[in-house]
């Protein structure tokens, strides 16, 4: 496989899987009896924890900072939003996985965009 395709696929896979997994974990912890801000915080912390556990696998396969930073951001955001949604109602598992994976892809696109801007500013 071409090197660039391999790393692009790796970026997509690591962020989508992390987003889906952290969304599922946050929903498993938080339910509709939770106060929403507490659910968001718990979801974010759970996401960070799971993201840190998953990171070594993705880092070993696909790169260091290029993987760590978007994956960590995906884990935090996906966990937080899933925690918030779970505190308001009980989302279905397929919806959670889809939403978490989509958050991962959006975070990845955002980091690509910021990277492009910073490259153009490099001294």
């Amino acid at each position: 496989m071409d090197r660039r395709v391999y790393f692009l696929a790796g970026d997509v896979l690591s962020n989508a899987v992390t987003g889906a997994a952290t969304a599922w974990l946050a929903a498993a912890i938080v339910d509709s009896s939770w106060f929403m801000p507490a659910g968001m915080l718990a979801g974010m912390l759970a996401g960070m924890g799971l993201g840190l556990l998953m990171m070594p696998v993705f880092v070993g396969l696909f790169g260091a900072m290029e993987v760590m930073l978007p994956v960590m951001l995906t884990a935090m955001l996906s966990g937080m939003l899933s925690g918030m949604a779970s505190a308001m109602q009980v989302p279905t598992i397929p919806l959670l996985l889809l939403a978490g994976g989509s958050i991962g892809i959006l975070v990845l696109l955002l980091t690509y965009a910021i990277d492009a801007v910073l490259h153009s500013k490099a001294s």
Partner: peptide, 9 residues
């Protein structure tokens, strides 16, 4: 093991 991806990239 941990640095393989970074070195390739």
């Amino acid at each position: 093991l941990l640095a393989w991806g970074a070195e390739q990239r």
